[in-house]
Design a protein around this nucleic acid. Sequence first.
DNA 1: CTCGGACTTGAAGCGCGCTTTAAGTCAAGC
DNA 2: GCTTGACTTAAAGCGCGCTTCAAGTCCGAG
Lengths: 132, 132
Amino acid sequence: MGSMTIGEVARRTGLQASAIRYYEKAGLLPKTQRVGGQRRYETSVLNYLQVIDVARRAGFRIEEIKHLFHGFGKSTPAFRRWKLLARRKITEMDDLISGAKKMKRLLEKADRCKCFDLEDCGKAFRGRGRQE
Amino acid sequence: MGSMTIGEVARRTGLQASAIRYYEKAGLLPKTQRVGGQRRYETSVLNYLQVIDVARRAGFRIEEIKHLFHGFGKSTPAFRRWKLLARRKITEMDDLISGAKKMKRLLEKADRCKCFDLEDCGKAFRGRGRQE
DNA sequence: CTCGGACTTGAAGCGCGCTTTAAGTCAAGC
DNA sequence: GCTTGACTTAAAGCGCGCTTCAAGTCCGAG
């Protein structure tokens, strides 16, 4: 149980094996041990893949996840860049959350009042600009 | 001012003209009036494009936006399908919001405690499965 | 020894959401 | 009339995140 094949990891995480291989090639996952040419994983990879999955669902790009998870070390310049990225992503999360809430409110309103068409749908947003 | 060219709409919304044309071809925007072959828009399209933009940022696909905004009429079967889609998207917004909050918390924690690496990053998620 | 099945690789393919390109039209100003 | 510049179209191209394919390897069961 301390050592799983890629198929087992796939089954347990719900990801496809091809995605896991892709993550490795993309530098998101460390090149893991091989036995007879085949990848073997420790159970810790399950947590790790779960974090990757949460990040992806939140709209992080592969390169960003890679930099956030591997790109700092303790050396000051790299670490500072890492902090900047992390803080930028935090504000992006705030924007995403408020945008998603907005969208949810719009959908709920439309679901209730049945007046969801081209003329009406924008009114909920009047006067509220984009925050980009 | 009641009638803008595509360039003016682009300038005002921050979108590219090519994106606006693309939305029209994709069925997201109605085919608008032409003057000498050129599109002319009423100011109402600005609100509409803003809603599209919010939806897109929240991860809606073009086809979904199209169905949500045009795909119902008052006929019962289409309307019921529309309601199902809208409600599904509402729960997706909830998932997105909670995922984004999770990710934000992780980033904040990492920003504070400096221990954000492959071994530690998953610990915040232990025991919390995916909700797919 | 042979078969089956899960794995390996590199390369090609795909779906999405645009952007870019190429070739052309239109209206205004000189 | 000619130029300029913003517009038009259809078609091709692009970046991302995988997936699929083709061809091969490895191991265990029979």
